[in-house]
Each structure stands twice: as structure tokens, then as C-alpha cells.
Amino acid sequence: MKIGILRFLGTNCDYDIWEYAKALGHDCEWLWYKDQFNPTAYDRIIIPGGFSYGDYLRSGALASRTPVMASVKQAAQNNIPILGICNGFQILCEIGLLPGALLANNNRRFIDKWVDLEVVSENNYWSWGQQNIRLPIAHGEGRYFIDEQGLKNLEDQGGIWMRYNDNPNGSVADIAGVTQGTVAGLMPHPESAIYEWMGGTDGLKLLRES
């Protein structure tokens, strides 16, 4: 697959996603925040995690107003699969490609730990192929929030992708990841679980060649 990886000022999981995709044998290209791109040139678009613009204002707010986002929206219209991880998830919520928002963890602190997750529903674009997975989280603003009506819509449309077994941050309905059409977002980091020496390899399942 050919994967386009977005880079904003301050993005710090950019190389991590590059390595992740390379480990699975995919071709990668950087997509710089100032530039627009041809969305149909890519099989997958990934928005990596990691403090774009230092999380100023609120996480994802500044990145969502950069020129590259026009192409991301176009990609969504063209049904190109788009994945946002951590800060990438925050950005996708910020521009409305995914419902809900990510707020400060309920303990108001950054949390880094391995978590057990249950895969609730999958779609053709983003699937794990197994029900229970274990991945690390590393975020300060990962508490998924959505209002009651939104939650109901999400449930009805099968948009709840993953839930935490033991909710670490106060997310509504234990939600760790959501999907909407070809767009998906999750707070855990699959790229940090791809070799045994990292402590687990479940991350490999998501980006494998389908």
C-alpha cells in the first residue's frame, strides 16, 4: 500500500508511523502541513500522534486550520481510508471528520501505560481481525466526550470501534476509538506495539496488507 503521513510543526510520532508502515512493507510519503496533495494518490492517509503546535489553544486546534487539511477533507469525500492516532484522532474530531471531542484526562495528568482493549465493531477499511488487543496509551487529553444523542448515533451506526477494558481517562462509554465511513481515530498507539521487545505485537494487525 502507499501511505501518506501528515506532518505538522511539532508532530513527534511522524518517524514512528514511518517505521510502522515500513515494517509492514508499505511505501510511505510525507505530507507537509503547508502543502495540498492529490488524495487519490494514496491507499491510506495517517495523521500521527504527538503535540502538533505544542497543543497550544487545545490539542489539534491549530493543526486543523492548516492548508493540508483541505486535501484531507477531499480524501474523506473520495472514501480514502484515513486514520488518526492520538493527536491525529484529536485533529479529526476537531475538523468534524469524526464525531465527539477529546478532553483532558479525568485525573488531569498525562498517562502512559499498556491497556487492554475490546474491538467492538469493525469496517472494511480499518480492522484488527481479533477481538481483544493490548496497546500502549500516551496522552494528556484522551477523554472521549460525546453528548447522549451523539453516542446513540454512534452506537446505531456501529461507530464505536474500540473500548477500554479498564477505563484509564474517563472516556464516555469507555470509548478508545471511533470510526465514521472510511475515517477512523484511536487514542492508543499501534506503532508502539509491533515487536516482541516492545512488549507486544498487536499493533501489526491494523495496517497489514488486506
Binding site: 513527534n12 510520532c13 514512528d16
Partner: peptide
């Protein structure tokens, strides 16, 4: 303490703060 530190960004960490020594690949 260490749960507040990102111990894995960079995808090189083989042993994190919960271990006797830290290790990167």
C-alpha cells in the same frame, strides 16, 4: 511518577521505567 512520562515515543523503547534499567533499540 513515571506513568506521567511518555516512555515509548520514538518506537525504540525495549525496557521502560518500570524496569531496573532503561533500554532502547
Amino acid at each position: 511518577i513515571y506513568q506521567q512520562y511518555d516512555q515509548r515515543v520514538g518506537v525504540r523503547t525495549a525496557k521502560d521505567c518500570s524496569q531496573d534499567i532503561g533500554v532502547v533499540r
